[in-house]
Write a protein that binds this DNA or RNA. Structure first.
Lengths: 209, 209
DNA sequence: AATATGAATGAATACTCATTCATTTTTAGA
DNA sequence: TCTAAAAATGAATGAGTATTCATTCATATT
C-alpha cells in the first residue's frame, strides 16, 4: 500500500515533481513560516528524500523564487479568467474582481500567509520585489482602465480613475492582512460590503444597492 | 546616593542598552530581512560583542518579540498623540490619522519593511499575531468611533461606521504594501488623495474638497 | 587604595541545515 | 529480457549560527 503509493509517486514526471515540491513548499511556509522552513521539511511534506530539492531546483533560493513565480502566475490566471468570464460590462468586471479577491479559495489564510511571507522579504530580495510589483502593477492597471470606462459611461465628476485604482488595490491587499491577523473577527461578507459601499459612493449609477 | 537612585541609574542604563539592541535589530531586519539577520549582525550593528544579545534578552526569539512589541508601542504612542493634538472635531481627528499613516516618518520604507517582516511570520507565531492584532483592533475601534460620530453629525444615510472603519484600516495597510513593493512609483500625495477622495464621497459635508 | 559587583567580551560549544555525491532504483528503448 | 540513462535516495560534509561561560573591564562603595 505504502510501497505502491511511493512507487507511483516516484514514477511521476519531472514537471509534476517540481510542482509537487512547490506545493509542499507553500504548505510548509504556511505552517511553519518561511524562516523555519527547511529543505528537509519540504522533502518530507512531499514524501520524498533529503536531496530531492537540490536535484530539481539546484538551490533553496531557486525553489523559493519559483514558488513565488508560481503563486503570482496562479493568481494572474484566475484574475484573467475572471475578467473574461464576467462579460463585457466594466462594472461587472470590477465587481467580479473584488469578489475574486475575497472568495474563500483565494482569500484563504494559508495562501495569504505565503504571500505575506514573501512580502516580508521584499525589501532585501530584489527578485521577490520584482515579481510582486509586476502583479500589483497589473492589477492596478486593469482596475484603472475599468474605472476609466465606468467614469466615462457615467459621466462622473470629481472622481479620478487613478485614485479609484489606488483605493481598491490597497483595500483588497489590506483586507488580506486582516484575514491573516484577525482570522476570528475577519468576516469576508463585511469586507465585501465595505468595498461595495465604497463603489456605491463613487459610482452610484453602476453600483447602487 | 540613595539606594533607589542607584538602582534607578542601573536599570536606566540597562534599558538604554536594550533599546540600542532593539534599534539595531530593526535596522538589520530592514536591510537584510528577518531571515538572514543573525545575532552577530545585531551585535555588530550596535557596535557590541557576540554574546550581548543573550545577555540582555536571553534568546533571539525574545529579542524579536520585544522588537515587535516596541514597534507596536511606538506606533500606538504616535497614534494617540495625533488623536490628542488634532482638536475635538471627529473629522479633523480622522484626517490627522490618515495623514499620520502616510507621513514620511511613519510611511518609511525601512520601517514598513520591519512591519512586513513580522506580518510575514504571523501565521506561525502566535505572539506576533497577538501583538499585531491588538494594534489593528485598536486602530479599527478608534476609526469606527470617529466614523460613528461623523455619521451622527452629518445625519448620513446608507453609510455604516463599521464599513468605513474596515475600508480605511485596510486601505492604509494596503498603501504601505505599495510603498514597500513599488517605491519608485509610489506617491504619498496620490495615496493621500485617494483616501481623501473616498472620504469626500462618504462624508461630503465633512470632507468636501 | 582595596574590594565588590554588574556589564561586556569573545572563544568554545553544540547544533542546524543546505548541499554534495556515491549508490540504488526506475524507466524506456532495443 | 537486457541495458543505458534518468531519477531518486540518504548518509556525509561543512558552513553558519545561537548559546554558553570563563574571563576581563568599568564603576561604585568602603
Amino acid at each position: 500500500m505504502v510501497a505502491t503509493a511511493k512507487t507511483a509517486k516516484r514514477t511521476a514526471r519531472r514537471e509534476q515533481r517540481r510542482q509537487q515540491l512547490i506545493d509542499a513548499t507553500m504548505k510548509c511556509i504556511a505552517r511553519k513560516g518561511m524562516g523555519s522552513t527547511t529543505l528537509a521539511d519540504v522533502a518530507g511534506e512531499a514524501g520524498l528524500s533529503q536531496g530531492i530539492v537540490n536535484l530539481h531546483f539546484e538551490s533553496k533560493d531557486n525553489l523559493l523564487n519559483e514558488t513565488l513565480r508560481y503563486l503570482a502566475d496562479e493568481y494572474k490566471a484566475q484574475f484573467n479568467k475572471t475578467l473574461e468570464k464576467s462579460g463585457p460590462d466594466a462594472a461587472a468586471k470590477l465587481r467580479a474582481l473584488i469578489e475574486l479577491d475575497l472568495r474563500p479559495s483565494i482569500c484563504d489564510r494559508r495562501k495569504i500567509a505565503v504571500w505575506f511571507a514573501f512580502w516580508g522579504e521584499v525589501k532585501s530580495r530584489p527578485t521577490y520585489r520584482k515579481i510582486c510589483d509586476e502583479r500589483d502593477q497589473y492589477y492596478d492597471d486593469v482596475v484603472e482602465r475599468l474605472a476609466s470606462e465606468i467614469i466615462a459611461e457615467g459621466k462622473y465628476k470629481s472622481v479620478s480613475a487613478e485614485s479609484v485604482a489606488i483605493a481598491l488595490t490597497s483595500m483588497t491587499n489590506g483586507l488580506w492582512l486582516s484575514c491573516l491577523i484577525s482570522p476570528r473577527t475577519f468576516d469576508r461578507h463585511k469586507a465585501t460590503d465595505a468595498v461595495f459601499e465604497y463603489l456605491c459612493k463613487v459610482f452610484p449609477k453602476h453600483f447602487s444597492k
